[in-house]
């Protein structure tokens, strides 16, 4: 059985090490926070916060305390606040160890597309371009194929890029791939997924 959303998030959480400062994107990456266990991880919210806590209890919502998805959240004993220039200074400056992000397409050379589809409504890149250009390690978590069954792991991206050669590791419902010289290397297969299935669902070059 391929991994479901929660299993993908749990696998992504294994990438995180004690003491890391991490930025989680919207969607499946948000679920990663549920699986960090006892590891001492500090979550960054790029609108100006380190040490992001869970959603507030009903009645405790504070309009001055939101995450980058504009959702109400809470602070922790370790929390610090800062302005947007400082926030992206720590991102651009490589102080954030890792970003875990969703994607529309990833190419075998690490190109990432996750911000716009030409001809459709364009909402903007937000902080995604800054994150992928600046953080230590970019981990993509996404379904391996789109709803039509086409691979999202490609030789070249067809959509406008968020960053060029920025992705380090791809975690999908089928398993884990690393971006290496010459293409993609299979790191792990989801339980019950064969290497042949992984290869058949991957349009990008797989190297040994």
């Amino acid at each position: 059985m391929p991994w479901d959303r929660n299993q993908m998030a749990a696998r992504a959480a294994e990438e995180l090490e004690d003491g890391m400062y991490v930025n989680l994107g919207i969607g499946i990456p948000t679920l990663v926070a549920n699986y960090v266990g006892d590891k001492d991880i500090t979550l960054q919210s790029e609108n100006g916060m380190l040490g992001m806590g869970p959603f507030p209890f009903e009645g405790d919502e504070d309009p001055d305390l939101i995450n980058a998805g504009k959702q109400t959240i809470t602070e922790l004993s370790r929390t610090s606040y800062f302005d947007s220039a400082t926030s992206f200074g720590m991102i651009r400056g490589g102080k954030i160890a890792a970003a875990i992000l969703g994607a529309m397409e990833v190419a075998e050379n690490g190109d990432l597309a996750n911000w716009m589809i030409p001809g459709k409504l364009v909402k903007g890149m937000g902080g995604a371009m800054d994150l992928v250009a600046g953080v230590g390690r970019v981990i993509v978590v996404m379904d391996h194929t789109n709803k039509h069954g086409d691979s999202k792991v490609l030789k070249e991206c067809t959509l406008p890029l968020t960053g060029r050669g920025v992705v380090d590791r791809i975690i999908t419902n089928l398993g884990v791939l690393d971006v290496v010289d010459g293409g993609l290397k299979i790191v792990e297969l989801a339980d019950g997924v064969t290497e042949d299935e992984m290869r058949a669902s991957t349009a990008g070059t797989i190297v040994d």
Partner: peptide, 30 residues
């Protein structure tokens, strides 16, 4: 469209008397 950190830094730079700066953000994109 400005990447979020580029927009913040463009404001900060303007306020600090810095007319331009180099960044990796957006390299290889539109």
């Amino acid at each position: 469209f400005n990447p979020q950190g580029t927009l913040a830094e463009r404001m900060r730079a303007g306020g600090h008397g810095i007319p331009g700066f180099y960044t990796k953000t957006g390299v290889g994109t539109v």
